[in-house]
């Protein structure tokens, strides 16, 4: 484990804790896309099936369990919690997330490293994670005035992806035979999707203004 990978994982963890804080403490999920959260739950459920088949480290297993638990907990809150579900911007969160799932699945059937059940699902989870943020970005664009916690949540998610790219570069130069094209390309696509958001986030932070996305 290198410092970039650790920083990436910690940003990811922190972003989820921010979201849980907002939902659990403030009892509001305003500005949060349920579509994106459902996609993440599906991403983790399909990727971390390897919890049962291979052991890497206690760290890996605990992190995987946390990501699984937190993603399903967030979806549960937004769908079923008496107070939280009322703050959900259902009418604004209209992205057709089902249209992302099928193409990602077909792509995973076509482009993968091994044609086995776990391997195809793992590849599917990478493709889906790359685009899972889209409903959230569309929702942010629509609400325009982004509340602080939601803005920070998306920022730390994007930071997590950026640190992973640094981690891959570092590993490529320090380890032998370390290359993973599918992971890299889907990771690059995913990080690129944050570029526009990052621009406005940093701009509002530098001017100490509330984050506002252009129409």
């Amino acid at each position: 484990m290198n410092i970039f990978r650790l920083a990436g994982d910690m940003s990811h963890l922190f972003s989820i804790l921010l979201l849980l804080l907002k939902i659990h403490t403030i009892k509001s999920c305003a500005g949060v896309s349920l579509k994106t959260q459902e996609l993440y739950a599906l991403v983790f459920a399909t990727r971390y099936l390897d919890i049962f088949t291979g052991y890497i480290s206690l760290y890996n297993t605990l992190m995987k369990m946390f990501f699984l638990w937190s993603s399903f907990t967030i979806v549960w809150y937004m769908r079923y919690h008496n107070v939280v579900r009322r703050s959900y911007d259902k009418d604004q969160d209209t992205f057709r997330h089902y249209f992302l799932i099928l193409p990602c699945f077909i792509l995973a059937l076509l482009v993968h490293e091994k044609f086995t059940f776990l391997e195809v699902l793992w590849t599917f989870s990478l493709y889906l994670e790359a685009v899972a943020i889209l409903p959230q970005l569309v929702l942010l664009q629509r609400t325009r005035n982004v509340d602080n916690l939601t803005g920070h949540y998306v920022f730390f998610l994007g930071a997590y992806r950026s640190f992973y790219i640094l981690n891959w570069i570092y590993r490529y130069f320090t380890e032998q035979n370390y290359y993973k094209w599918i992971t890299w390309i889907s990771g690059l696509v995913q990080t690129a999707l944050y570029a526009d958001f990052f621009y406005y986030y940093v701009k509002s932070w530098r001017n100490s203004e509330r984050l506002q996305l252009p129409a």
């Binding site: 990978r5 994982d9 035979n177």
Partner: peptide, 10 residues
């Protein structure tokens, strides 16, 4: 690329 597939990342 035999061992590069080890999935140690999250």
């Amino acid at each position: 690329a035999k061992e590069s597939r080890k999935k140690d990342e999250l």
